[in-house]
Simulated assay, not measured.
Amino acid sequence: MTSGETAPSEQPGRLSGLDGIRGLAALFVVLHHCRLLSFPGFPADTGPAWASWLLYGHFAVVVFITLSGFSLAVSPARSGWRLGGLGRFARRRAWRILPPYWAALVFSLAVAWALVPQPGQGAPTAKSVVFHGLLVQDLFGSPSPNGAFWSIAIEAQLYFALPLLLLVVRRLGAVAMVAAVTVVVVAVGLLAGGVPAVGMLMRLTPQFAVLFAAGVLAAGVLRAPVRGPVRAALPWAALGAVVPVVALVAVQGPVWTVAHFFWVDLALAPAAGLLLAAVAGGRPRPLVRLLDSRPIRSLGSFSYSLYLVHAPVVVVLHHFVVAPRFEPGVTGFLVLLALAVPVSVVFARGFAALFELPFQRHRGTAALRAAVRERLSRARPVPEAPGE
């Protein structure tokens, strides 16, 4: 989500590069969905070898979930791992993620009902509206109006775990917290095949809890910044952790990888956490400068909206513009990319201006109403004086 967390750039002492990671991850998901529509048969690789890497959009969600844990733990890490009140935390999360999500849900339902449903899905039903509206679509089945919404429910559910994770960090330390979460999740994975009650927990994508916890651990870099050789070694440690996983995925291919997402995601948790710790510490500098460049940072500022609305846009363009004119294949794929990427980005930017960015800038109903009144007063023409 892939993710509705408050960006570090909105906090004092902005952490360079993290908005860029979020923006590139969201863009990768757009490319992934263009790839799936152009070359049917996923998870089988039915397209050209040079586009095979676009089959792995799932791993962008891995980045989102880890980054979500990191971003939400930044402030607690700077204040003794304390959340600052459960009620306040819940209100801020709801204010941040629900308005754009619900607006995107209305948009997605309208597209699915009036134009074209999502691939492999029927028209949304009343259950679709209820389950997606309440963010429990990962628990209860119904036709999905948006192929990207599955991860938003998981992330929202992880918010409920954050206070407990922080409590464990205060009592036992961040490393012990990650170890405890990992032990529980690995036990679920090992028992799921033989114990039906445990197997039901797999609907929650439990490995994402480890990724979320790894992000919380990475935020500890801000509480006790690493220096010297250790700081310089973080990017190399991240690279060393990810290379074996990438090599395994490349050798085994997408069919095996999709069937083993649970274990592959767990294997990626150290690399994802180390990458965030490195970037938060300003290393490697060339990568941080790239991620913090204006275009990429700008993309990150509305990445949540891009993630939320791109799927219906891509499907509509493919169904009405590309598919009638091009057979599935490379040409249709390139045309879809050329259309869907800029249209999705521009549409998401406009969507964010209405439904996401105002809720970032104004932290409550009163502040938002005051901003709207001020905007309307500036837009209202000033009456001319008599005789003018």
Rank of each mutant, 00 (worst) to 15 (best):
P117L: 00
Q118Y: 01
Q118C: 02
F64M: 09
F107C: 12
D138T: 14
A104R: 00
A51C: 12
W53G: 15
Q118R: 01
W102D: 10
P124R: 00
V74H: 01
S68K: 04
R92D: 10
S52T: 11
L83E: 08
L115E: 03
G84E: 13
R82F: 04
H58V: 13
G120F: 01
P100D: 06
A114V: 11
R78M: 06
G141V: 13
A44W: 15
G47T: 03
G85Q: 08
D138V: 14
R88V: 09
R96F: 05
F70Y: 07
V106F: 06
Y101I: 13
V111R: 00
L37V: 00
G133M: 12
A44Y: 15
V63F: 04
A148F: 02
A94D: 11
D45Q: 11
A104Q: 01
A114R: 08
H58F: 10
T125C: 04
A60N: 09
F39M: 08
L115K: 05
F42C: 04
L109D: 04
S144C: 14
Y101R: 09
F64E: 10
I154W: 06
H33E: 00
T46Y: 03
F42K: 00
V129Y: 02
I65H: 05
P143W: 00
S142D: 06
A104Y: 01
G80R: 05
W95T: 13
P40S: 08
A123T: 01
F64Y: 12
A156Q: 06
A153I: 09
D138N: 15
P43L: 05
F140C: 15
L134G: 10
G47N: 02
A77C: 05
R93T: 12
Y101W: 11
A94C: 13
L83K: 08
V74M: 03
L139G: 13
L54N: 02
A126K: 09
V61Y: 05
S151I: 14
Y101C: 12
H32E: 01
P124Y: 00
S151A: 14
A153W: 03
G84P: 15
V62M: 14
F64I: 08
L83F: 08
S151P: 13
F149N: 04
A77P: 06
R35S: 04
I65S: 06
R92G: 14
H58Y: 10
S68L: 08
D138G: 13
G84H: 11
A123G: 03
F64G: 13
P76A: 04
R92Q: 12
Q118A: 07
P99Q: 10
L109E: 05
P40L: 08
V62F: 12
F59E: 02
A51V: 14
L135Y: 09
A110T: 15
W150L: 10
V116M: 01
I152A: 15
F107E: 10
G133N: 12
A51S: 14
F89C: 05
A148H: 02
I152K: 15
V106N: 06
A114P: 10
W53K: 06
R78T: 05
S38M: 06
F70W: 06
I65E: 07
Y56T: 04
